[in-house]
Simulated scan of single mutants.
Amino acid sequence: MSVDTQKIIEIVKQVKPLFLDREGSSQIKVKGVADFVTQIDFKVQAQVKTALYELYPEIQFMGEEKDNSDIDFDGDVWILDPVDGTTNLIHDFRNSTLSLALARKGVLTLGIIYHPYSDEIFVAERGKGALLNGSPISVSKRQNFSECLISIGTSPYYRELAKENFRIFEKVFTDCADIRRLGSAALELAYVAAGRIDAYFERSLKPWDYAAGMLLVEEAGGKVTDYKGKPVDITGNSDIVAGNRAIGEILVEKYL
């Protein structure tokens, strides 16, 4: 069974007013260290889940704000992060996104990342390339690490990793053009796919953080691996390294 990508894009874009609701984003629940959820997270997830089930009731739904213990990756699975960058949302630091992927028997077939503040929508279908607002995008072609803009992820839920993370960040910063931290793994992966960032890496991301962005990077000509350069298993948490092939390999071999 095929899905109508254009209809999925329409569902995704309907969440924009929710992201702009400052009252909803101020209703906060603490889930853990630096781990927050707002009423916007719940509302976006409920709206998208309902719309997807109306179109495709047979496809399973994995969402950040639900129990996913019953998910079977041998079947078809939607993978949704309703608000990737909730801390950004709380602070009105406008780098929050919606990330939606479709996996079929463990293989990513569709990835959509929507940045409601800029109205940019990144879309990838397996074998069909990656698009930004309908126009083709590709990863950067830079080969010289000293010329590269590298995005880092601080793994804020895992403060025990801070010492090692920042040791790596210092080494990378010393050797590259500069570093960035956007606070949304999905957005950072989308920017890698669009060639705005040459590479991005972060420890211990969850499938809804990286699934859509992983397909985007791959369809834009890049590569996504774990910190050892191995393929990523989308069914669970993973360290993520994404970039054009040359710069991703340099990160794995020299810094991680």
Rank of each mutant, 00 (worst) to 15 (best):
S2H: 12
Q6E: 11
Q6G: 07
I8G: 08
F19N: 07
D21N: 13
R22G: 08
Q27W: 02
I28H: 10
V33R: 09
K43P: 06
A51C: 02
A51I: 02
E54R: 09
L55Q: 09
E58T: 07
I59D: 13
F61V: 01
D70V: 05
D72K: 08
D74V: 04
D76L: 07
D81M: 07
P82T: 03
T86Q: 01
T86D: 01
N88R: 04
I90A: 04
H91R: 11
D92K: 05
D92M: 06
R94N: 10
T97P: 05
L98T: 03
A103Q: 06
R104G: 05
G106W: 08
G106I: 08
G111A: 12
I112C: 08
I112D: 04
P116A: 03
P116D: 06
Y117F: 12
E120V: 09
I121F: 04
F122M: 02
E125S: 12
G134H: 01
S138P: 09
S140N: 10
N144S: 15
N144D: 15
F145H: 11
F145K: 14
L149I: 15
S151A: 15
I152L: 15
G153V: 01
Y157H: 13
R159Q: 14
E160I: 10
F166N: 11
R167A: 13
F169N: 04
E170W: 05
V172K: 00
V172Q: 04
F173W: 10
D175E: 06
D175F: 03
D175Y: 03
C176F: 03
I179G: 00
R180K: 12
R181D: 13
L182W: 05
G183R: 03
G183M: 01
G183Y: 01
L187V: 03
L187R: 02
A193N: 05
E202L: 11
R203I: 10
K206Y: 12
K206Q: 14
W208N: 09
A211G: 02
A212S: 01
A212N: 04
A212H: 00
G213W: 08
V217W: 04
A220F: 06
A220W: 01
V224F: 03
V224N: 00
K228P: 06
V232A: 02
V232N: 06
D233V: 11
T235I: 12
N237P: 10
D239L: 09
I240K: 07
A242T: 09
R245G: 11
R245H: 14
G248N: 09
G248K: 05
E249A: 15
I250T: 10
